[in-house]
């Protein structure tokens, strides 16, 4: 790895360090609570809270490296959550006792995978841009969410499930383990396997990939199934604990996921990006939210600041990538 890539991939982690220092110092003057920001439990909680959007953002990284985008993940997330909770109330499932839990998980994960496959098939077979396809399915899937239970929340609390979700293994919460596990597997997928390397090639130069005999359509299908699966995995992890889903849950998750991916340095046009950097992006956003809350800012301010930082980061990235004064103006 040369200096250039180190700089590119290290930037997000440097940003996280800056945030930590800033909030620790600012927190000691401004904080409304007594505890320090860099408190160990606080950091563990931060990782746990990063998990729902984080798991989705990891999948979004692959989709975006492909040069596509998936706007329907928020709706997929909500629908999977409903299937998870509602399926446990079905009579035959209730008869199974706690064995209903793994089955409910399978149902929820299948839901996400199937919804993803629908996206992927449409992108493959029609050739319509993924942005448009998933914009449509975002509305459509959200429609399904409302059809299921109207405006009513869907609730079901299973205490065994809650215990599992709240468990801590080696100090880390269940949700954190899922986030880190997914990150590790996807990192291996993207760096070590042919499927992952082809994803980069397709996003970078699609024509070259086609000419080299890579079957782009089926490749897209697999990746959309993967992100669908991850969106429902995210739902499974989160709603195992909370036990109640509103039909509006998961809205704007697609945009938060994209924000984290872009902050992590993945190119919007595809062909470049990294799973690990996305993980950094997710943590950086969660740190900002938590840190600004810690020093007493309200939600509106938090969103404003995150938005400004996103633009500032992309501008900085552009400046760093310029070739100096000799460059051709555009």
């Amino acid at each position: 790895m040369n200096k250039d890539t180190l700089l590119k991939q290290g930037a997000i982690w440097a940003f996280i360090v800056v945030e930590l220092i800033f909030f620790s110092i600012a927190g000691s003057y401004l904080s409304v609570s007594d505890s320090a920001f860099m408190d160990f439990d606080n950091m563990l909680l931060l990782l746990k809270q990063s998990a729902p959007i984080g798991i989705i953002a990891l999948g979004m990284t692959i989709i975006m490296i492909n040069g596509n985008i998936d706007l329907s993940v928020g709706a997929t997330y909500a629908l999977s959550a409903i299937i998870l909770l509602d399926s446990m109330t079905w009579p035959f499932m209730q008869a199974m006792g706690d064995w209903a839990i793994p089955l409910a998980w399978v149902f929820a994960l299948l839901t996400g995978t199937i919804l993803g496959a629908i996206n992927g098939l449409i992108v493959w077979k029609t050739g319509v841009d993924a942005f448009i396809v998933t914009l449509g399915s975002m509305l459509g899937y959200r429609g399904l969410v409302f059809m299921y239970n109207g405006e009513q929340p869907t609730s079901h609390l299973n205490w065994t499930l809650v215990d599992f979700a709240e468990a801590q293994f080696l100090g880390l919460h269940t949700a954190t383990w899922f986030l880190l596990g997914a990150a590790l597997l996807l990192w291996l997928l993207m760096t070590k396997t042919v499927h992952g390397r082809n994803a980069y090639a397709i996003g970078n130069n699609r024509e070259a990939a086609v000419n080299a005999g890579i079957r782009v359509g089926p490749h897209f299908l697999w990746n959309f199934m993967l992100i669908g699966f991850l969106a429902s995995l995210s739902a499974v992890v989160f709603y195992s604990e909370s036990g109640s889903v509103n039909p509006n849950d998961g809205m704007l998750y697609e945009l938060w996921a994209i924000t984290a991916v872009v902050l992590g340095g993945t190119k919007l046009t595809g062909g470049y990006g990294s799973i690990i950097s996305t993980l950094g992006g997710v943590i950086a956003i969660q740190l900002l939210r938590k840190g600004l809350g810690h020093i007493g800012a309200d939600t509106e301010t938090v969103n404003l600041v995150i938005g400004l930082i996103l633009i500032a980061v992309l501008f900085l990235d552009r400046q760093l990538n310029r070739k100096g004064k000799e460059e051709l103006k555009t």
Partner: peptide, 22 residues
Amino acid sequence: SLADELTVAENIWLGELPLKSF
């Protein structure tokens, strides 16, 4: 028709990268 973010080796063997298990 090259993918400029990939290495020389990956470009040369694009579409037929040598495989191991999994």
